[in-house]
Design a protein around this nucleic acid. Structure first.
Length: 493
RNA sequence: GGGCCGUUAACUCAGUCGGUAGAGUAUCUGCCUUUUAAGCAGAGAGCCGCUGGUUCGAGUCCAGCACGGCCCA
């Protein structure tokens, strides 16, 4: 258990004490590394049989496997770039050093000076001339064959997960490459990357419940942002007319396989563009990232084959509800009828919700799981899109789309509302919704309206759920598999 | 918030009808100087998630709680 009194841990402590008693420093920091495992692999690949077997190497890493004989041993050690076998024998290191070496365990960090040779099976191996302890591990690693499986331990002690499960490490390398590919794509097109406040006096930019906090010195309530949107648009007003941010937002909601209270979003804004332009750009971006990371533009996600080649399907919200959700078109403008339908499907709609909200709730339950191939859903009611521009043809509709892949919302974008008078009216509607008990409704943001009054060029903007997209490209069944330290409850005793 | 499932050695897991705790790996001891989940022989290791209840007796049955997983809202 975690109290450290188990037999294995007691034995480690005794070994550590025995080493200390013999004058061994358990935690030195003066070992200089000349080569990483990757360097050795590359040099072998380059030189093949011609590798110089007298060249000295100084290498370091964690012992991850140890096969010990009487007076010799094979071990595998690992650094960030890979793992390599080493051979330690008494004839080479001497009796004294070999005696100390016998006290080392799997999990300890070591430094080895030696030369390369091939074993009789042809495996390139570091023959130790000198071996040193660099850090004593006081707890044993999980078992080598089955690894660490308990999901709770994997998340709470992610370092063990990373040591024991190579596929986990691969997921997070892929995650980093995905983010890099998004960044490369946008920088290439002249976007400026910025950072805007995560602590906001008025939370805005999404319909979501915020976390609240308090600044002591300023005596000021603050919210963790639910989206960076309103700040990024202030930057567009300030003349940065291609701008993006990749960072955390926070929503005070339950956790699930698709929701973590803190999550990573890409938001970008492009002036002189419309939501139509944005859909085209979204296809290009996501195809580019997929191609960069996977080398192809198709992949399998949880048994579904996903092809990112375009053009992607486009459906209006009402079409989707009708054709995929089986909602009778005559009901679409009948609030009472929609409420009855929701009730019959077991979908909870809180009191006083307007028609648009009911439509999107029905959509989430009846349509979203069916949108497997990349699909844009367009034409959302204005009342659920308080920051989006009205359609010129249908003023009750917003120029807005959401992108769905594998039954999951991946992106949300629209032509931005830049009419300050309309924006103020929309905020007032949201305030009314909030008074009707909708905790997710927007707050009034007078300062943002003032900013709009200075003039924002016609602009289109979008948010992309990075964690969800990483799930797709890594075939992860849960968002916790793509977040290094997902939020878990404290263990109470 | 609701439903179902899980929690046993450091790790991965068994544990029958309620009868006093098992395996593999790891660890420890001995042997072993080219192994590949090394091998052979031996040994030690447990708050059975927590609290209560039923019972002569609970890992096992019941209730509550905690944490986790999946599904639903």
């Amino acid at each position: 258990m975690m109290d450290g009194s188990s037999e294995v841990i007691r034995q480690r402590r005794e070994k550590a004490k025995a080493l200390t008693d013999r004058g061994v420093d358990l935690y030195p920091n003066d070992f200089k590394v000349s080569h990483r495992v990757e360097d050795v692999r590359q040099s072998i690949a380059r030189q093949g049989e011609g590798v110089d077997d007298t060249a000295p190497f100084a290498m370091a890493g964690r012992i991850i496997m140890l096969r010990s004989f009487g007076k010799a041993a094979f071990l595998h050690f690992r650094d960030h770039t890979g793992q390599l076998q080493a051979y330690v024998k008494q004839d080479e290191v001497g009796e004294e050093a070999y005696g100390l070496f016998k006290q080392l365990d799997v999990g300890d960090f070591i430094g080895i000076r030696g030369t390369l040779f091939q074993t009789k099976t042809g495996e390139w191996t570091l023959l130790a001339k000198k071996i040193r302890l660099l850090c004593k591990a006081m707890r044993p690693l999980p078992e080598k064959f089955h690894g660490l499986r308990d999901p709770e331990k994997r998340y709470r002690q992610r370092y063990l997960d990373l040591i024991m499960n190579p596929s986990v490490r691969k997921v997070f390398v892929t995650r980093a490459r995905i983010i890099q590919a998004f960044r490369d794509f946008l920088l290439e097109r002249g976007f400026l990357e910025v950072e805007t406040p995560m602590m906001q006096p008025i939370p805005g930019g999404a319909e979501a419940t915020p976390f609240q906090t308090f600044h002591n010195a300023l005596g000021m309530n603050l919210f963790l942002r639910v989206a960076p949107e309103l700040y990024l648009k202030r930057l567009v007003i300030g003349g940065i007319d291609r701008v993006f941010e990749i960072n955390r937002s926070f929503r005070n909601e339950g956790v699930s396989t698709r929701h973590n209270p803190e999550f990573t979003m890409l938001e970008f804004y492009l002036a002189y563009a419309t939501y139509e332009d944005l859909m085209t750009l979204t296809e290009e971006t996501l195809r580019f990232v997929t191609q960069q990371v996977l080398g192809v533009t198709h992949f399998s996600y949880q048994g579904s084959n996903i092809n990112m080649d375009g053009p992607w399907a486009r459906l209006t919200l009402e079409q989707a509800l009708n054709e995929l959700g089986g909602v009778d078109p005559s009901l679409l403008n009948d609030r009472q009828g929609l409420l009855a339908l929701a009730k019959s499907k077991g979908i909870e709609i809180k009191k006083g919700r307007r028609r648009g909200k009911i439509l999107t709730k029905l959509f989430d339950a009846l349509v979203e799981p069916k949108l497997i191939a990349p699909t844009f859903v367009v034409d959302y009611p204005v009342e659920v899109s308080p920051l989006a521009r009205r359609s010129r043809l249908e003023p009750d509709m917003a120029e807005r789309f959401e992108l769905f892949i594998a039954g999951s919302e991946i992106a949300n974008g629209f032509s931005e509302l830049n009419d300050p008078v309309d924006q103020k009216r929309r905020f007032l509607d949201q305030v009314a919704d909030r008074q009707d008990g909708d905790e997710e409704a927007h707050y009034m943001d007078e300062d943002y309206v003032t900013a709009l009054e200075y003039g924002m060029p016609p602009t289109a903007g979008e948010g992309v759920g990075i964690d969800r997209f990483v799930m797709l490209l890594t075939d992860a069944p849960s968002i916790r598999e793509v977040i290094l330290f997902p939020l878990l409850k404290n263990i109470r005793h």
